[in-house]
Structures are given as structure tokens and as C-alpha cells.
Nucleic acid binder design. Structure first.
Ligand SMILES: [Mn+2]
Ligand SMILES: [Mn+2]
Ligand SMILES: [Mn+2]
Ligand SMILES: [Mn+2]
Lengths: 222, 222
DNA sequence: CTGGGGAGTTAGCCACACCTAAGAAATTAG
DNA sequence: CTAATTTCTTAGGTGTGGCTAACTCCCCAG
């Protein structure tokens, strides 16, 4: 297996590096990883050194951290595991979409490759997780979805919710409360950038979203 | 939670100590643990020292290792996790009874207490695992089952299979092949102690079992 | 083009989980 | 009741994953 022989910590590093360069072009720095992983920068320095020694990342001194091809494969395998497990937790055990991330964060390191394959089949080969994120195939294929953040929608424009960031459980509960869920339709009523508020219409109801909430929701225009 | 704050290794030690004193009265020694855990005796010495420092085991120098009350609780929690997970792997993912032990051995450390409770409910509060072993309740109750090993049955005596040792996957496959499964009926035809062979009748067929196989099968007399 | 200041690395510490080699204790044998 | 042997612990070493404190490098401001 591609993730065999890696510690859970190493797997998380690779996954976070992958995630960091996926939605932005900013260089992946030691401090950014430390921030996201909740550890100190020296801890990251040491860990990245070990990953580089294993040929999983490249890291010019004082430069930006990037995955090698084998690092990318391992990272995608972890993403696959994570998203399949989230899907399982919701559909089989009845978890809410705000409860699955933490559990999957641990389980992804514990299940075997056989478990993952069996699970995928049992779930009917799902293509996206409970937050709308695409699930990579066993051989590392990852469908792109043409979504943009709610923030980038002009006033009057409408879209269908394709993806919601699963980083913050609190925020997911808030969105549920506001009637926002996958595949729902949203119309942007008014941008109030100065106030950091975005007024939208969901199911005929007006809702004021804060900027963090608006940024977390991704829609497909139509 | 009772197992919170313990490392996976510590959890395994407690579980193995519990298992060792459950089916026999022999003292639990450093070397016995090393054997079962597949590590060296110094490794066990050190680990047991750490467990004793946490108040989970008592260990007089050069004496027998025993669980304290809090150690027993933690051990039973792990046994509960392990057996529920095995049950899940068989009933939901279609694993064979010879394939579940290893997977559960890892997963038991990764699932949350909430996961375990949800799983138990979802499985319909099963009382025994795929090998017939009883599943402890959340508060540490463990039903005794009045089974004896096949070896201890006299010639001509019959019994219903209540439990099969899950320690050896190879052996489980062998038993399946011989038509032996949970709740099946077995009649002892002949003891040949010298040859290490036990002849039994299963579903009208005669089968010669080796001693290890016979020892692994537990039946309720009738 | 030279300082600083902030980011990154190194140094030095701890805990855990493993190991081999060596020493101490307990048990068994003579 | 010694002596030998087995068993257990201690000593010392490795790798991983953490930390704080100290240092070094890079880059931007002046
Ligand atoms: Mn993780
Ligand atoms: Mn997700
Ligand atoms: Mn285990
Ligand atoms: Mn079992």
C-alpha cells in the first residue's frame, strides 16, 4: 500500500500539505503547517526533515514545502480514506455532518486497505463525502468540481451548494440551522463587504451570513 | 472515558493481562506477556513499570502482574470495543471470522466512545462476537458462559459449539473447512491422546481433529 | 547597501516503545 | 544447602513526536 510504513503523524502531514496547495498557490511554510497541525514550528521542521529523507516531500532550506509524486499518492490515499469514512459515519451510524471530521481524522490511520475497499463497495462507490468533497478513486483520480465560494457570487446570482468546508464543526451546525445543506439552492441578495455580511435567500427565507460562513460555502452557478 | 489518556500499547497490555488471568490461574509473568505481545522481556518490564506508575497494575518485583480495579475497567472496555468491532466487520462488511481479529486489534484503539455506543445500538446490542465470546456491557458486566473445551468431553458425549478461540486465523479456516461453526453440534467419537487426535462427528461426518484444534473449540454439554 | 525583525532551524530536553547486552534475583538441581 | 539455570530487571541505544530557548538566515525598510 502507498501509506504503509508511514506513521499516523507522517500521514497527517502529507494530507495537510496536499490540502494546503490544493485550494491556493501560496507557498507551504513551516509556520503554516504548525498552525494547522497545532504544533510548534521546530516540531514541523523535524518532521518535514524526516519526510524529505523518505522522499515524500521536497524542502529547500528556508523554502516552500512540496509533495513528491510518492508523497502525493500517499496524501490522496489518506484523503480517500478520510472521505469514505466520513460518508460511512453519516450513512451507517447516523452521525451529523458536524461530528464526522474528528472521528475520521483518527480512523483514517487505523483501517486497512482491505477495509477501505470493502467499505467503498458497501457504500455503493460514493463520489463525494458528506461535505460535498470528491472522493479519490483507489488509483488516485480526483474529479474536479467547478464550484466557487459564495463570496464570489454577484448580487442576484444563484447557485446550488456543492461543497461546504468541514474544518469547523461549529460553523457546520450554524449552516444547518440556517437551512443550508448540500444540493440546496442559494441566491445572493446583498453584499455588505464593509459590515462583513452577506444576505442570501434560502428556501424563501432571508439569512445574513458572516464572512467566515460565506467563505465556507461553495456553489455551482446557475 | 476509562481508556482515555492511555496509549494503544498500554491498552493492549491491559487487555492481554486480563485475558491471561481469565482462562487460567497461572501467574502473569513478564515473559508470558512478552510472548503474547511479540516483544522482548525488557520492553515488557519497562511498559509494566509505566502501567504500575499510573495505578493500572500491581507488580511486586519479580512477582506476578495483576490488574487494579481501574486497570480491569480499562481492559474490559478494550475487550468490549474489540468484540463489537469484530461483530461489525462480519455483519456489515462481510469479513470471514478468520479475518476480523487483526483488523479489530488496531481499530479498537481508534474508535471513540461515542462510536462504540452507536455501533452497539446499530448492531442490535449483540451479546457475543463472531467467535462466541461474550461482549461486555458499557458498565463492565460480562456474562459467563458455561462452556468446556472439546478435549474435556468424554467419548460419546455431545455438545453445542459456544465459542472458538480466535487467536489463530489459520485454525479458524481449518475449522470452517471441517464444518465446525458456532451453535453447531459435535459428538466426540474417540480420544486418541497418544496420537494427539480427537475423532468427532459433525453433521454426520467423521473428522479427525488435532489437539490444538480440539483445544480451541468450546462446547456446552448436552 | 546595510540593519533589523520575523521566520526557520538547531540545540537540548522529555516520554514512549522498541532493541541487545549485562547484571541481579529466584528457582530448581544436585 | 550450595550451585546452576532460568527469569527478570537495569543499562545503554535508536527512532518518533513533542516542547522551549537560542541561534541563523532572508528579506525588506530605511
Ligand atoms: Mn488524521
Ligand atoms: Mn469532509
Ligand atoms: Mn490492539
Ligand atoms: Mn473474537
Amino acid at each position: 500500500m502507498t501509506t504503509s510504513g508511514l506513521t499516523p503523524t507522517a500521514q497527517d502531514y502529507l494530507k495537510v500539505i496536499w490540502g494546503a496547495q490544493e485550494w491556493s498557490d501560496e507557498p507551504v511554510t513551516t509556520s503554516a503547517l504548525a498552525e494547522r497541525l497545532g504544533v510548534s514550528t521546530p516540531t514541523v521542521s523535524e518532521a518535514v526533515k524526516r519526510l524529505a529523507a523518505k522522499g515524500l516531500v521536497s524542502h529547500p532550506r528556508y523554502g516552500s514545502i512540496a509533495l513528491t509524486e510518492s508523497g502525493r499518492r500517499a496524501a490522496l490515499d489518506m484523503v480517500r480514506r478520510h472521505r469514505l469514512l466520513e460518508t460511512f459515519l453519516v450513512t451507517y451510524l447516523g452521525y451529523g455532518w458536524d461530528e464526522v471530521h474528528e472521528e475520521a481524522e483518527i480512523l483514517e490511520h487505523a483501517v486497512s486497505a482491505a477495509f477501505v475497499d470493502r467499505l467503498e463497495r458497501r457504500l455503493g462507490r460514493p463520489t463525494r463525502d458528506p461535505h460535498g468533497d470528491p472522493i479519490p478513486s483507489r488509483d488516485g483520480e480526483l474529479p474536479e468540481l467547478p464550484a466557487v465560494s459564495l463570496c464570489e457570487l454577484a448580487e442576484g446570482a444563484a447557485g446550488q451548494v456543492a461543497r461546504v468546508s468541514d474544518a469547523d464543526a461549529e460553523l457546520l451546525r450554524y449552516l444547518s440551522g440556517a437551512g443550508i445543506g448540500l444540493d440546496g439552492w442559494i441566491t445572493v441578495v446583498r453584499h455588505q463587504a464593509a459590515a462583513g455580511v452577506l444576505t442570501v435567500e434560502v428556501d424563501g427565507r432571508r439569512v445574513d451570513l458572516g464572512l467566515p460562513a460565506a467563505r465556507a460555502v461553495w456553489v455551482v452557478r446557475k
